[in-house]
Simulated assay, not measured.
Amino acid sequence: MQIPKHMKAMVLTGHGGLDKLVYSEVPVPSLEDNDVLIKVAACGVNNTDLNTRTGWYAPSVKSAMTEDIGLNGVAASAPDLGSWDRASLRFPRIQGADATGTIVAVGRNVPAARVGERVITDPCIRDPRRPRHSQGVHYFGSEYDGGYAEYTKIPTGNAVQVNSALSDEELASFACSYSTGEEMLVRIDLQKDETVLVTGASGGVGSALIQLAKRRGARVIAVGGRSKETAIRQLGADEFIPRERNDLSDAISELVGTRGIDAVADVTGGPTFSQMLRALRRAGRYVSAGAIAGPCPEIDLRDLIYKDLQMWGVGNPQSSTFAALVGYIERDEIKPLVAKTFPLEKLREAHAEFVSKKHVGKIVIKV
C-alpha cells in the first residue's frame, strides 16, 4: 500500500489537563532496522495514559486519582513530574499502549513476510540482557510513541500476530489490562479452588482479573461500586463486596470465615490496603498493579511479618505472559469487554468518560 508522509495523531504536549491533548498532523514515523510500521485500527485507553498526562506518577502526589486530577492535572508547580519509572518524558508524545492493526512496512532486519499481519502490541519494550522482572525499559505510549495515531512503529517482537474473529475494537481491549492481570496471577501462582480478592473489579485490569482467575478455577471475591454488581457477577465473580463498605476485612470474614483468603490482586490501593492484608491467611499472597485510590496507604508491618505474607508489585509483565495471553484470545478462553468507543479526534472526551468511572470494562479509540 502507499504509505503517506503525514498522519493524524493525538499529541500530548505536556503534563496537565485535557487541553494538553492536541489533534495534529505529524510525520509518519520512520523505521529503525528492527521495527515494524502498523496502520492502527483501534487503541485502548488505560490508567497509565491519565497518570502520565496529569503528572500523577510524581512522588510528591499523595492523593488518589480524582476526577478533578483526571480532567485538570496535578499542580503544574510539582517539582517531580514524570512517567511510571519516575523519569522525565520528552514532549510532544503520542500516547496509547493498546494498539491493534495491520503491519504495512518493516525495517531492514524484519522479514518482509510480516507485511499484512494483523497484530496487537505488547506495550512493554524490554531489554532481554537484564535480569528477570527488570527487563522493561520503555513503555509503548510513554517513553515511546504509541497508538493514538493513524500509524505507529514498534520493535518487531512487540507486534504480536493474532488470529481471531474479534473486531479491532475488541482486540484493542486486551493488551495492557489483561497482560497486567495475568502477570499478577503468575506472580502469586494462583491455583484452582483458591480464593482471591479482586479490587477495582469494574475497571480494565479488575474485569480482566475476574476472567483470568476463573480460567484458573479460582473462587473470586470482587470489590466494586454497588451499582455495578450485576455486571461484575456476569463476568464470573462468585462473591461481591460493595466498595462503599468501610469494613472490608469484616465483609471478607462474613464470606470465608476466620481462615482468611489465599490471595489479593489489588489495583486500587488506598485506605483499605491494611484491611486486605488483615484478611489474608497465614502465608497469603498480595500483588499490586495500581494505586488509583491512593498511593500511600498505611501498613501494619505486624501483618506482613507475623503472618509470613508474600507481596509483589507488577509494572512490566514478562514476554511469556503476553504470549500466553494471545493464546487465550485465539482459543476464546477470555472475552473482551468494551464499554464504549470514541473516534481518535474525541480522545479528550474519552479521557473524561474514563475518569468518571461510570463504565465497566474498557474504553477504546477507533482510528
Score class of each variant (00 low, 15 high):
Thr100Met: 12
Asp127Pro: 02
Pro92Cys: 14
Thr102Ser: 08
Ala87Pro: 00
Cys124His: 10
Arg129Leu: 13
Ser77Asp: 11
Ser83His: 06
Arg114Ile: 08
Arg118Leu: 07
Ser77Met: 00
Pro128Arg: 00
Ser88Gln: 12
Asp122Cys: 11
Pro79Met: 04
Cys124Lys: 01
Arg90Lys: 14
Cys124Asn: 12
Pro131Gln: 00
Phe91Ser: 11
Leu81Lys: 11
Gly107Val: 06
Pro123Arg: 15
Ser83Pro: 00
Thr121Ser: 13
Ala105Tyr: 03
Val104Glu: 04
Gly116Lys: 03
Val106Arg: 10
Asp122Thr: 02
Arg129Glu: 05
Val106Thr: 13
Ser88Glu: 12
Cys124Arg: 00
Ala78Asn: 06
Arg93Ala: 15
Leu81Phe: 04
Pro111Ile: 14
Pro123Asp: 15
Val106Lys: 04
Ala99Tyr: 08
Asn109Phe: 00
Ile103Cys: 02
Ala76Lys: 03
Gly107Ser: 13
Gly107Trp: 07
Leu81Thr: 06
Pro79Val: 01
Arg86His: 14
Ala78Gly: 00
Arg90Cys: 03
Val104Asp: 08
Leu81Pro: 05
Glu117Lys: 08
Arg108Ser: 11
Pro128Cys: 04
Pro79His: 10
Arg93Gln: 15
Leu81Ser: 04
Leu89Gln: 14
Thr102Trp: 05
Thr121Leu: 15
Ser88Pro: 00
Arg126Asn: 03
Arg130Thr: 02
Trp84Val: 11
Ile103Tyr: 02
Ile125Pro: 02
Leu81Trp: 01
Ala76Val: 07
Gln95Tyr: 06
Gln95Met: 15
Gly107Ala: 10
Gly116Ser: 04
Gly96Glu: 10
Ala112Arg: 09
Thr121Asn: 13
Val110Arg: 07
Pro128Gly: 02
Pro123Thr: 15
Pro92Glu: 15
Pro92Met: 15
Ile94Ser: 06
Arg108Thr: 09
Ser77Cys: 00
Arg129Gln: 05
Trp84Asn: 09
Pro128Asp: 04
Gly101Asn: 04
Arg126Gln: 03
Ser83Thr: 03
Ala76Gly: 05
Asn109Gln: 05
Pro92Ile: 15
Ala113Ser: 08
Phe91Gln: 14
Phe91Val: 11
Val119Leu: 02
